[in-house]
Simulated scan of single mutants.
Amino acid sequence: MSEIRQELQVAALRNGTVIDHIPSEKLFTVVSLLGLEHMDCNITIGFNLESEKLGKKGIIKIADKFFDDEEINRITVVAPHVKLNIIREYEVIEKRELELPDELQGIVKCANPKCITNNEPMPTRFHVIDKETCVIKCHYCEKEFKKEDIVLSQRRTL
């Protein structure tokens, strides 16, 4: 099935956000990270769609919702390089490929039990050492973590 035909299977979005090129195996993690199951707006989720770049991909269209930087940064930890499109009046007004920021605050939990963030009520802070392989370093205890060892902190309530 051609990509044009797939696009016709999902209704156009008047205003909102489209998150595209999500690796299929990460789609429902992204849904959970953004708390989409708790939102009242119209949400369309496409799963295992054909993709030349990924083989299979996911896409999420969220009507009348625009995400802040913290929410977007949560996505980049599990699915870097997704495409984010901002839609206003059926037109894409902003299109960007996401990447890990230089610093993650309050998003990742430090796995070091002796770290001050696990013993005091304070947000975590990590420096991104390698954006391609997702290696991060705790600002406080200086312990480094690879992508497979990262645990996301509890999501703030909307």
Rank of each mutant, 00 (worst) to 15 (best):
N118M: 02
K57H: 07
S32T: 11
E50L: 06
C110E: 01
E71A: 04
E91S: 10
V82D: 03
I116M: 14
A111I: 12
C134V: 14
D64A: 02
F47G: 01
I59L: 14
E37M: 07
H127R: 13
I45T: 09
I93E: 05
E142M: 07
P121G: 02
Y140P: 03
H139S: 06
F145P: 00
P113L: 10
V30M: 11
S24Q: 01
N118I: 03
A79C: 13
S32L: 08
K109Y: 00
V92C: 15
V135I: 11
V92P: 07
L27Q: 07
V82G: 05
E97I: 15
I19E: 02
E120F: 12
T44H: 07
T29W: 04
A111P: 04
D68G: 04
V92A: 13
F28A: 00
C138H: 13
S32V: 07
N73P: 05
E120G: 00
K95P: 02
H81Q: 13
E120Y: 12
L98Y: 09
H38Q: 13
C41N: 15
I19L: 12
K53A: 11
E71S: 10
I62W: 05
L98T: 03
F47V: 08
V82Q: 05
E120S: 09
E89S: 14
G35K: 03
T76R: 02
N85E: 15
K109R: 10
R125V: 01
E103H: 04
D68M: 02
C134H: 10
G58Y: 01
E91H: 12
L98D: 04
G58W: 03
N73G: 02
E132Q: 11
G58E: 08
E89R: 10
V108A: 08
Y140Q: 03
I60Y: 05
V77Q: 00
I60F: 05
I59E: 14
D102I: 00
K56N: 14
H81S: 15
K53W: 08
T124P: 07
I75F: 08
I107L: 10
N48Q: 13
E70A: 14
K95R: 15
I107Q: 10
V108E: 07
K146I: 02
I59C: 12
K61R: 15
F47H: 15
E132W: 02
E142G: 00
D130P: 09
R74T: 06
C115Q: 09
L33N: 12
P101G: 07
C141K: 03
E52M: 03
D68A: 07
P101S: 06
I136A: 11
E25H: 12
P121K: 14
V18E: 13
I72T: 14
L84H: 00
